[in-house]
Amino acid sequence: MLTPLEIEALRISLQVSGTALLIILVPGIAMAWLLARHEFFGKSLLDGIVHLPLVLPPVVVGYLLLVVMGRRGLVGSWLFDHLGLSLPFTWQGAALAGGIMAFPLLVRAVRLSLEAVDPRLEAAARTLGASRLRVFFTITLPLAVPGLVTGAVLAFARALSEFGATITFASNIPGETRTLPLALYSLIQTPGMEDAAARLCVISVVVAMVSLVASEWLARRTRRRMAGRDRGTT
């Protein structure tokens, strides 16, 4: 049904986006919590930096990644010298690029749902002998799960559709960094491949739809578990 080329692009896409999500999940939750629950000097600046990938041209992000994470970059040279790790032109690099582009979406969604968690429930948990850490993992985070699911799916979808930063930082290498969008781009550039391009387009739509439906189903399931919530607190 699918051609080997299509399967390969799909596999790389899922692998890259999944890894991107894994990379940013914990930092994203931590950042969302920091922004939702704390007041500190430079908060607006930090908030702005987090949102930068949303408004910057992706090519700029890709370029900055090359500068910082490239073999001779500030962080990249250290990674290469000490861990023998080189990110540009690898699928891990593509995952990093996708993760950074998706980061603001994850943070926004998680932050909103953390802000919606009733601090009075957290206070109640504290009086029941729970430390701050336990309150976070047993009350705050579970109550924010619907937003976390939405954020994760949005981030996954964003990484899936990532093009500009990926092609700049990780290039368009078949079998390594050629994700669905990059493969589609290559086909469009090749005369006589219009049909193949259309097939890839359909595959992209289907993958995006599946992830959206899955997120909706997950979110509804968690909401139903807490059906009605606590009448006493509303």
């Binding site: 009075r120 429930l121 206070a123 948990a125 578990r225 807490m226 006493g232 607190t233």
Partner: peptide, 11 residues
């Protein structure tokens, strides 16, 4: 502590 609202954990 028993608060004015029950503050049960809904999940």
């Amino acid at each position: 502590v028993v608060f004015q609202e029950a503050r049960l954990f809904p999940h």
